[in-house]
């Protein structure tokens, strides 16, 4: 049903609506700034999607009612559709919620009809054309690894990265515009990191959940069990110099929970965490204070190593 994966290329120029979500603009605005720096420099035009809102995230409308969920998602998707462009996001939750909602509308005419009846009250209609792409896929498929390699000022020689694609980058694969060959052995983020000169090997808990989101707000203790296991695996199997993720929730959890575990004496090491767009922005030479200036677990050492070689 959702066959088309080509994004809109007006006059051969890539253009996307930058869908921010909530965590990025309000908790990790350095990720937003990183996107605003890298995409224009890579020849990708950004539209602000003025008036966008929460996707809506899982604990809100998806927990109340399916049509209500799809209606909020559709208003956001309309903002792109009205301009003939797709959205792109650096938040896995937004990627998941928007694409699952779109899938529901396209596969269930009744839901689609009810949504458009609600949208009519604000003079909008969602045709189902615009979708939400993930920034990592845009970089991988539309920009391309070669262009990324050409654009960087610093390479990550002798740096080992533990990748964390995050749940909604992968599953359920049938609702997404782009999918890994094997969603339980994802390669895209590893290749994106390797394009910067780093090693990004497989590790046994690569696709394991970080424990963020509803799990953390419901039971922090259980959430920290998951993140601790993951961090210890990363330390033991890779002794990684940093963790790189394509999800803003994983970023917050791996960065923030790490510090909490250290304070409680449950963890005796520290691994800096970055979103991939931040790492790319650093390699392209943008100001670290602007594109990677907010973290709980210290990043200064690894940033200096990247910049000073």
């Amino acid at each position: 049903m959702i066959a088309e994966t080509e994004s809109v290329k007006g006059e051969n120029k890539l253009k996307f609506g930058l869908f921010l979500g909530c965590n990025i603009p309000f908790n990790r605005p350095d990720v937003e700034q990183a996107m605003r720096k890298i995409f224009p420099a890579l020849g990708v035009e950004i539209d602000d999607l003025k008036g966008q809102s929460c996707c809506p995230t899982w604990g809100t409308m998806p927990s109340i009612d399916i049509v209500a969920w799809c209606a909020v998602a559709a208003r956001n998707l309309c903002l792109g559709e009205e301009k003939g462009i797709d959205l792109m996001t650096a938040c896995n939750s937004c990627y998941g919620s928007l694409n699952e909602a779109r899938h529901k509308m396209l596969t269930n005419p009744e839901i689609h009809k009810s949504v458009n009846e609600i949208l009519a009250k604000i003079g909008k209609k969602y045709e189902g054309k615009s979708k939400c792409r993930h920034v990592a896929w845009v970089l991988y498929k539309d920009v391309g690894l070669e262009k990324i390699k050409e654009s960087i000022k610093y390479t990550l020689d002798d740096i080992t990265i533990a990748v964390q694609p995050g749940c909604h980058f992968l599953w359920p694969s049938n609702v997404y515009p782009d999918k890994e060959e094997d969603p339980f052995n994802p390669k895209v983020l590893r290749e994106l990191c390797e394009a910067l000169g780093a090693e990004a090997p497989y590790y046994s808990k690569l696709v394991d959940c970080c424990g963020m989101g509803a799990l953390r707000s419901t039971d922090p203790e259980k959430s920290f069990t998951l993140v601790k296991e993951k961090l210890e695996c990363i330390k033991d199997e890779l002794d990684a110099d940093m963790i790189v993720t394509t999800c803003s929730s994983c970023l917050i959890q791996l960065d923030d929970a790490q510090e909490r575990l250290r304070k409680e004496g449950k963890l005796n090491f520290s691994i800096p965490v970055l979103h991939y767009v931040q790492l790319l922005a650093l390699c392209m030479g943008f100001d670290p204070g602007q594109v990677a200036g907010i973290s709980v677990t210290p990043r200064d050492e690894i940033i200096n190593r990247i910049i000073k070689g």
Binding site: W58, C167, L170, P172, C209, A214, K222
Partner: peptide, 14 residues
């Protein structure tokens, strides 16, 4: 509280 702890990861759906 279990349903409210679900992270909606969709490993199960997959």
């Amino acid at each position: 509280p279990t349903p409210w702890a679900c992270v909606a990861c969709n490993r199960c759906t997959e």
